[in-house]
Amino acid sequence: MVILETFYDSTFFTYLLLPFLIFVSRIMDVTIGTIRIVMVSKGQKLWAPILGFFEILIWLLAISKIFENLDNWVNYIAYAAGFATGNYIGLIIEERLAMGIVKIQIITRKSAEELIVNLKNAGYGITHHEARGSSETVSIIYSIIKRTEINKVQNIVKSTNPKAFYSIEDVKQVSHGIFPVRTVTRRMRKSK
């Protein structure tokens, strides 16, 4: 017991180990918080509260150590650095999860027929119409796609019509849609 008390009072624990643990705790709770916010925006009613529970539990542990050691300025730096790092890591994880669906809107001055054919051949459902732009007629193409497919659709647009303007918006929910069917080889690769 005396050995533990001596360890907790040591310079190593006070200025290195404790700040490191606070830093790691903040990374964890902010990363979880970032993912939780994504889950809330996607309507994930089960995952959002579970993640919120762990986010706050970890935060309480970290902040309690800060308050127990108010005279240790290294803890403040670790806390702030953990917050910043947690935001960064959370965004990277969210980007890699690529959950949900998005709406892509493509506006092109050039004839949209080839782009429409290429998108349809790739298995994407599209809606299109002609519209009046600032100085000329344009074609507008809409498609609802899985977030994991954004790069593929962008590549189709860029290779077919590199000057096309497009925007991408998150979609919370759709009632129907046409999404590309996974190929057998792709499914087989995933099952391995």
Score class of each variant (00 low, 15 high):
133 G>E: 02
67 F>Q: 08
32 I>K: 04
51 L>K: 06
36 R>F: 03
99 M>C: 02
126 I>N: 01
8 Y>W: 12
177 G>K: 06
54 F>C: 07
88 Y>R: 10
153 V>G: 04
117 V>D: 07
44 Q>T: 00
161 N>C: 12
24 V>E: 06
101 I>P: 03
7 F>V: 12
39 M>S: 07
161 N>G: 01
131 A>L: 12
140 I>K: 07
59 W>S: 09
170 D>E: 11
116 I>F: 00
169 E>N: 11
105 Q>K: 14
41 S>T: 14
123 G>E: 05
145 I>A: 07
47 W>T: 14
133 G>S: 09
27 I>N: 04
119 L>D: 01
79 Y>V: 06
54 F>M: 08
33 G>S: 10
82 G>H: 07
121 N>T: 08
89 I>V: 15
9 D>F: 04
114 E>Y: 06
61 L>T: 13
99 M>L: 15
167 S>I: 09
158 K>Q: 10
15 Y>M: 09
104 I>A: 09
120 K>S: 10
176 H>R: 02
48 A>Y: 07
137 T>P: 00
12 F>A: 13
121 N>V: 02
132 R>C: 00
55 E>D: 08
42 K>R: 15
189 R>S: 09
59 W>R: 08
49 P>W: 10
177 G>C: 01
100 G>S: 11
141 I>G: 05
43 G>P: 05
34 T>E: 05
105 Q>A: 12
27 I>R: 06
24 V>W: 06
135 S>F: 13
75 N>C: 15
94 E>Y: 02
90 G>P: 07
183 T>P: 00
89 I>K: 04
117 V>N: 08
188 M>C: 00
100 G>W: 05
123 G>K: 07
